[in-house]
Amino acid sequence: MRSTASFIGRLRWLIIVPLLLASDRPDLYLIPLKGTGPSSRLVGTAKLTPARSPFGVATTRDGQFLFNVDVDVPTLPPPTSYGPTATVFVVWIASAQLDRIEKLGPLVPGVATKGRVAMPKFMVVITAEPDAKGTKWTGPIVMRGNSPSSYLTNFSGHTMFNGGVPQ
């Protein structure tokens, strides 16, 4: 009986592994931005490039990777379509835990907003704001995307660690 269970246990890996290997992986340096709610048809990108470093790997003293980020959204409706006080779109970088929020800058459709990011996992968030002076967003979230590092999984809850087969 135990041999049967062992066989079935191993057989499922023979099925799982090729499926996993064949699946698409996200781009390591390109974040697709997606519209939220009524803006769900909007698309854009945040392109990451390693920041310049004489060592080839750009890091801070505490080991955070430094990336240049170019946020590009080809078309957006007028900011006022997100509220009467909205006059500008602003790009933000937020840590996965939302304990750090940094303003990248105002966004003009078709013109890349450029900045720098040094966080292990982060979100790119575009909001509609009354102005671009604030240090935290106040307006509605128009678009968002997750850093490729966000795909890192906590395996303690993963199906394969709990006797199941990943779907």
Partner: peptide, 19 residues
């Protein structure tokens, strides 16, 4: 094969440098 399976699901992201 269990290791290969784990590595397969662990390959969604790699940082530029593993320390």
């Amino acid at each position: 094969i269990t290791l290969t399976a784990f590595m397969s699901v662990d390959t969604m992201y790699f940082p530029p440098q593993e320390w």
